[in-house]
């Protein structure tokens, strides 16, 4: 049994079966790639794991705990965090505030503390801010902490999303096409960053990415899906030579 266990999950939208009896198992510390042609159902898998969509069939477990009936915020506090394929930052907040929001659920401020602004609250706020700035530093965003997140360039917004996701102190981090829209140089750096995050924060990472070079370079295990079904599972080398995978990519795209 792994840290994240997806068993026999199915999701339908009307007549369309977006995910079909899917199994997936991540072990602690994995850097796991999920790939497939456009519309294969990768984002839907993320949405099922994070509780944004409810599964029609099957179960999902985190560390042995059933999570597929919980709401997204509970799943997040149990230790799954994510980024979005279409960036979803809080647009009226600064870079720093974006990270603080995510950090906040790890702290418990009472409402009275918040209204009266007690000393306890102030020290906790300082702590949240310190943590948030530290994360921003890792992603090279600390210099722009007070700018509106909305005003950052695209690549920085993607990195900020990862920083924000990490701020929730997850056990499992899901990244949905983090390199989309980046140039090769930026992608390369991002990949290095992803690997070092995994090592330093001791977390498990599930990565969806279109850039094959990136996926093959960074992931240790890769699962390929097409039309919501698994068509291959193995090491990058095994996947590269798999005729079914080549077929799916050539036939689909």
């Amino acid at each position: 049994m792994g840290i994240l266990d997806v068993r026999n999950c199915t999701k339908r939208f009307g007549g369309l079966i977006a995910v079909k009896a899917l199994d997936m198992c991540l072990n602690q510390g994995d850097l796991y790639g999920l790939i497939g042609p456009n519309g294969a159902g990768k984002t839907t898998v993320f949405n099922l794991i994070t509780g944004v969509y409810k599964t029609d069939e099957g179960s999902i477990e985190l560390d042995g705990r059933t999570i597929h009936r919980s709401k997204p915020s509970s799943i997040a506090s149990l230790g799954i965090s994510r980024t979005f394929q279409n960036i979803r930052l809080f647009r009226s907040m600064t870079v720093l505030e974006n990270v603080k929001v995510a950090r906040h659920m790890r702290k418990k401020q009472g409402i009275v503390d918040a209204i009266v602004h007690t000393r306890h609250l102030k020290s906790e706020e300082d702590e949240i801010e310190r943590d948030a700035m530290q994360l921003l530093k890792i992603f090279n965003l600390d210099a722009r902490a007070d700018e509106l997140a909305f005003n950052l360039p695209y690549g920085s917004q993607r990195r900020l999303e990862i920083a924000r996701a990490l701020a929730t102190a997850p056990k499992v981090l899901l990244l949905d096409e983090p390199a989309a829209g980046m140039n090769p140089q930026e992608s390369l750096e991002l990949m290095r960053l992803i690997r070092s995050i995994r090592d330093e924060f001791h977390i498990t990472i599930l990565l969806v990415e279109h850039n094959m070079k990136v996926v093959m370079g960074v992931c240790e295990k890769i699962q390929v899906i097409d039309y919501g079904e698994t068509i291959a599972l193995g090491t990058p080398r095994e996947i590269q030579g798999n005729p079914k995978v080549i077929e799916a990519y050539l036939g689909g795209a």
Binding site: S92, M93, H104
Partner: peptide, 16 residues
């Protein structure tokens, strides 16, 4: 404010 800005992202970041 996170709910106002993006409810789905807010939930994903653990905001109930």
């Amino acid at each position: 404010i996170s709910i106002r800005d993006d409810e789905i992202a807010a939930e994903a970041m653990g905001v109930d």
